[in-house]
Amino acid sequence: MSPISLLSMVLQGESVAEETVGHGSDDQEFTRFVKEVEPRLSHALAASYGPEVGAEATADALAWAWEHWDRLVGMKHPLGYLYRVGQSNARRYFRPTKLFPAVSPESVDPTLPVLLEGLSRNQRVATVLIHALDYSEREVAELVGISRWSVRTHAERGLARLRKALEVTADA
């Protein structure tokens, strides 16, 4: 039984106890899958399109995964595919005039959101995922769909630009 048919039965208030015996693995697998991929996906899409649109795009991409679960489990790089799905959905939303909102934590320089908008999309994604969230270059390359060399270049240039603008040295 697919997650969709299961869900529709639940929504219709039908008793599915007998039906779900031995078939709850899809649901559990999906939950595990979301826990595993959601952090990278949401951070990458937030870095690409800002947290507002990124959250909607992440939810859209994971909703697509839920609806096409059978198709997704056979993919070699499902996360990269979902990133594409999220990108496609993100383009359908109106974008805020400011992609990155100001935040209150004192540990963050107030100009950081503005500086992030000055980076290219790939630079933002690579810099955030590699330098802030400690993902490997290979993971980011698979996610974004570019070579590891390009990911490294984007991450280094993005970080260098942020450091220069914030006047923070590598030793700080």
Partner: peptide
């Protein structure tokens, strides 16, 4: 701070 997390 800003990223909204999405659960299953």
């Amino acid at each position: 701070e800003v990223v909204e997390r999405v659960t299953a």
